[in-house]
Amino acid sequence: MPLILAVAPPPNVHVRYHALIPSAGTGTRAGTAGPKQYEKLAGRLLVQHTLEAFTRLGRIASVLVVVAPGDERMPTGPGWRVSACGGATRAASVANGLAELKAQGAGDDDWVLVHDAARCLVTPGQIDRLIDACGADAVGGLLAQPLADTLKQEEGGRVAQTLPRERKWLAQTPQMFRLALLQRALAQAGDAVTDEASAIEAIGLKPLLVAGSAQNFKVTWPEDFALAEAVIRSRTR
């Protein structure tokens, strides 16, 4: 597999920041009747909380939401566009979204911040922190949290061994990489990767880890909805 080098553009090249929100999944683990991004949280759709964090940032040039073909439930708004180009996997949805961004005028050197639709508690401040940390980096990076819990490896429903937690981080989103670099990395890595950083790592590059927040969790399980709603309501008091 040929090595892809990450090279920052010359300082006089103007680059923009685009948000890409893959939202084509069904969220089967959440126990909801339909896709979890359309569940109500504090009176609004879960995905609307996600989108608000990005549309409040003036430095984000565009926000693209990728939904499954035929999905007409995604709300429209003045700050984002919706494209029904979702694929069978997250990697396919992101790859299709990158192609759509490029077709709409995004440049190869522009930054793309890929963010899980179900991470509805991300804040503009956290997004700003990622941009500030990675904007001058040749590779890019991601929000993440150092692992705080003891980590167990399972075998047959029982603990097989305890793994050291030192230098281990929980990957979050956004994950921020240049458009053309991420396109090439995903094309080489294929659909098996579960996040963009994994594709970048697979071509020999090392994404930057930027401290995120424990509140930036992905709504995955049924009990996560009540926790997310409590956090949202605590922010509006």
Rank of each mutant, 00 (worst) to 15 (best):
L113R: 00
S23L: 07
Q104P: 02
T76D: 08
L57R: 14
A230H: 08
A230L: 03
H49P: 07
V65I: 08
K40R: 13
Q104C: 13
Y17K: 03
G43C: 11
R90G: 08
Q145R: 12
N216W: 01
Y17Q: 05
L181T: 05
E100R: 15
D132S: 08
A24I: 06
T76G: 14
A192L: 04
V7L: 14
Q175E: 15
Q188C: 08
N12H: 15
H49G: 06
L5S: 13
A103Y: 02
E223T: 12
V94L: 12
T26C: 09
T50A: 10
Q175I: 04
E100T: 15
T55W: 03
V139H: 02
N96C: 09
A106W: 00
R129A: 14
P11F: 02
L179R: 03
D116W: 06
A99Y: 08
I4S: 04
I21N: 02
F177I: 05
K206Y: 06
I127E: 01
Q183T: 11
K152W: 13
L147G: 01
G212I: 07
V193Q: 01
D224A: 02
S213N: 14
E52S: 14
Q215P: 00
R165L: 08
A118H: 09
A33F: 05
A24W: 05
R56N: 06
V219K: 00
A136D: 11
L227D: 10
A192W: 06
T150A: 13
A19S: 10
V210E: 00
I4V: 15
P69V: 10
V13N: 03
A61S: 12
K36W: 04
D137K: 07
G34C: 11
C134V: 15
M176T: 04
E229V: 06
G86Q: 01
L51C: 08
F225K: 02
E223M: 12
L182Y: 02
D116E: 14
A180G: 03
A68C: 10
R90V: 13
P10K: 09
P207M: 09
A211Y: 10
R81S: 13
G86W: 04
V82L: 09
T236S: 13
D191V: 10
T26N: 09
V15L: 12
Q188D: 04
S62Q: 12
A180L: 11
E154D: 14
R237S: 11
A53M: 05
I60P: 12
D110N: 07
G31H: 06
A24P: 02
A42Y: 12
A106K: 00
T173H: 07
R165K: 13
E229K: 10
Y17G: 00
V219C: 04
G31N: 07
A33P: 02
A84V: 03
L101G: 03
A117R: 04
P9E: 03
E166Y: 07
Q104K: 09
W111S: 01
A214M: 06
P75K: 08
V112P: 00
